[in-house]
Each structure stands twice: as C-alpha cells, then as structure tokens.
Amino acid sequence: METLLPLMVGTLFAVGMYFILHRHLFKVILGLILFGLATNLFLFVIGGLTRGGSAIISGEQQVATEPYADPVPQALLLTAIVIGFGIQAFSIVLIRRVYMTFKSNNVDDLNKENEHH
C-alpha cells in the first residue's frame, strides 16, 4: 500500500491537471473533481498509514496504545472533503449556467464571445 498510494496520488494529480487544462467544459468538471481527490488522498497518505490501530483511549489508560493511526490528518481530510464537495457542487452549477448561456461546451467559444463586444 505504501508504494501504491503515492503512485496513485501522482497519477490523480496529473490526470486532474490535464483535464482542467482541457477545452471541453465537462472535462474541466472532471479535472476539478480528480484534482480535489488527489489532494485529499495526498493528505491521507502523508498523515501516515497505520492499520488496525484506532486512537480511542480505553477507560484506565491516559494515552492511546501504540501503534495508533493519527486522528488529526483524518479530521483534516473530512473537513477538506466537505469543503471540496461544496466548491465542486458550485462549479458544476456554474459550468451548467455557462453551457446554457453560451450554448457551447468549448472554453474557446467563451473568448470569441468576448471579442465581439
């Protein structure tokens, strides 16, 4: 897992970036989602992967027993997923509006419209 996940993060970043640079609006949406996923996965991996060790402290103990998974990156991750979801939802609605207004899903057409004015 430790070798596989970083490779996946890298691939997701690359694919996300490629799609964001694409002129097709739907692929821009895909790019935004994949880029968000890449960041979230990166946050998860870099927090350290510990299997089967929850950070729950049982009754008598003062600290959790080693080895335990650090809960902070997971908390950050949850927050980041929610925020990312909000922004992705907004951008999907925005891109739909762009598509309806410009009657085109090509980013280049947006600029053409601008030159006429």
Binding site: I20, L32, F35, F42, I46, R97, V98, N114
Partner: peptide, 30 residues
C-alpha cells in the same frame, strides 16, 4: 455572460491554489 466567463476562470485557478495550500499544510503537519 461576462460574469460567468470571469467566474469560471476565477473558480478554476483558485481551486488549484487551494489544492496547493492543502498539500503544503499536509506536508507541514507530517
């Protein structure tokens, strides 16, 4: 029309920037 076009650019580039920040924060914590 102009607003939608401008916002699209603004959203995309700022989303990328936020991704970079989050990555930096993750490394900082680790």
């Amino acid at each position: 029309k102009g607003q939608l076009e401008g916002t699209l650019k603004y959203v995309t580039i700022n989303f990328l920037a936020s991704g970079l920040l989050l990555t930096g924060i993750g490394i900082m914590y680790s």
